[in-house]
Design a protein around this nucleic acid. Structure first.
Lengths: 332, 332
DNA sequence: CTACATTTTGCAATCGGTTGCAAGCCACTG
DNA sequence: CAGTGGCTTGCAACCGATTGCAAAATGTAG
């Protein structure tokens, strides 16, 4: 079937060790044998079996990438960045699509079976305990977009969702909105609750405000749209913080159905700044989350952990900022 | 570090073979030993090392998933479906993000190093030769969304892009468009050229038509928008077949900039029927491509190939149909 | 209880590599 | 030329599993 170490060794007239050594960084081989081996390897089209070598080295370079946000377009960017960042470092993404699963047990077992060197939980909805389960099973883990904590149990890279909630509230206030609402993601998503907390904390400083809140069933267009349609049946607020860009886009679609102009009749501010939010026909004012930096940093952290699996847990929090586009009225 | 076969064998007081056999389907073990082993395994939290076993069985259950469409939202669905379909069958997706690479050599080498059982090339832009390279390297391969051929060299699952071009042309004609244009994806994409061919073939039957065509730089919103903006500078057609939904959405955005109403001033028909096309604020008339069926079928085919790697190559072509929404004028 | 068929079991080789160790090689020094 | 030290090299054990084979255990029939 496939060509192995032994075949190359035979052709080159050297021992198997010699072949192995020419293919491992920093091993001691003379220029002469290296040359012979490389020639033989090329001739046979040999490339070393990564899995076999993992048996002795204990390294597979496989990284589990676990996610559940397959209906949010921002995930396409996340996914693109992650796979590229990993590849660039010679690491291989092994994907787990959680769909609606929220228990880590299956993913943990599976990724252990494949001896992944580390796991990345890329989700803003799963609780810290999810990532913790990997840690407890001895799999180094980074929780990207996870809940930030002052004393994290596992590595977390992302944003301060509570602060983002405050930021959104302040932005609405600064633009003169007085009847304001939070339209969040699902109640069981940590990010939805954290953003809610920050938002409420800020608006409660102003007792004169009329404040409302509600939670969509998912981080999806349909859920955002459905929730906004429901709100429009009653007496809606005039400025909303939608807990995520895709919810915002759904909400914008609902406004349009009712003949309402975003930014004029009702204001919307989102969170994420996904590519689509820049599209001229969406033009969403939103809080920018530095996705690329977050992901690069996550992968950096993964690499660090490969060197030192006992690394002391750390939270890397990146600042966000408001991107002004067309869905909030201008500052006075 | 991690608990192995040997540990379980020791605790259960049986040989390593016995342990191995209790974990492999259809091996001969008595109920008694099986029970002892399972108890010991549970106690130690043992789960077999898939990579070690792959050494002897020659099966990894790893499937390479190769793609380059990370800027087209439809890929999110593709990706969701693929990862789920594979997981359901106990297979594990190992991702390769090609970005701009068009040479198969690197991916082939990498996937061979990881001994994937098969590869899926999920791309409508890469040529058949790309997938062929995997086949030639001894890696069973399915080219999903690939160019359909009457005598394929490797397994292809997808649609007949030429026929889709014809279908789009007929639809525009049936609705009374007489100045019609093709706004395709990049010229080096097989799907862009195939759709173009079918489209032209059909319109050339009607010499009275005024026909134009152009190709966007990529399958992306920006490229579609830019190309349509360019067309609007001159004298645009009044009905367009955009070679892909994301191009259509870009084009729609351009129309809006010029104060033109899609479906009234200028007609647009897309291809794919991605989720977003159903959104009320997009409402794109398009040709539906049965993505879910295509992907399920692709994974079925992968499973077949695992049983019989020498399986005779086959093209599985799925019919498409026009989904009427709001961006073409009604049939007379 | 014996003879024979059928399971069940453990031994040992194997999969494709890596690596500690000791021996071999070489050049250089005195 | 013997002695020293630094590189190279091959041997053989090992990583964590699977599996053919033969021995052992069990079951069945006479």
């Amino acid at each position: 079937m496939s060509v192995t170490l032994k075949d190359v060794a035979a052709l080159a007239g050297v021992s198997r060790s010699a072949v192995s050594r020419t293919f491992t960084e920093g091993a001691s081989v003379s220029a002469k044998t290296r040359c012979k081996v490389e020639k033989a390897a090329k001739e046979l089209g040999y490339s070393p079996n990564a899995l076999a070598s993992s048996l002795t080295t204990g390294r597979t370079k496989l990284i589990g990438l676990i996610s559940n946000n397959f209906h949010n377009p921002v995930f396409l960017e996340v996914f693109d960045q992650f796979t590229r960042a990993l590849q660039e470092r010679g690491l291989r993404p092994l994907i787990v699509n959680l769909t609606d699963e929220t228990e880590p047990a299956n993913s943990v077992r599976m990724l252990r079976q494949y001896s992944v060197d580390a796991a990345i939980v890329a989700s803003s909805t799963l609780p810290p305990s999810f990532a913790k389960a990997f840690h407890d099973a001895g799999v180094p883990v980074v929780h990207t977009f996870g809940r930030s904590a002052t004393s994290p149990e596992v590595h977390v890279v992302g944003i301060d969702n509570v602060e983002c909630g405050r930021m959104a509230a302040r932005e609405l206030l600064a633009r003169g909105y007085r009847r304001i609402g939070y339209l969040g993601g699902p109640k069981d998503a940590t990010s939805a609750m954290d953003r809610y907390r920050g938002f409420m904390e800020e608006v409660e400083k102003h007792p004169e405000l009329e404040v409302s809140h509600s939670f969509a069933g998912a981080y999806s267009f349909e859920a955002g749209r459905a929730e906004m349609l429901r709100l429009l049946e009653g007496s809606p607020a005039d400025g909303y913080f939608c807990g995520d860009d895709i919810l915002s886009v759904g909400a914008l679609s609902a406004l349009r159905d009712h003949g309402l102009k975003p930014g004029e009749d009702i204001g919307i501010i989102g969170l994420n700044d996904m590519e689509m939010s820049r599209w001229e026909n969406i033009d969403l004012t939103t809080i920018h989350q530095p996705i690329k930096q977050i992901i690069t940093s996550s992968v950096d952290l993964v690499e660090e952990m490969l060197k030192d699996p006992k690394r002391y847990p750390e939270a890397r929090i990146f600042p966000c900022r408001v991107i002004e586009r067309g869905t909030l009225r201008p500052r006075p």
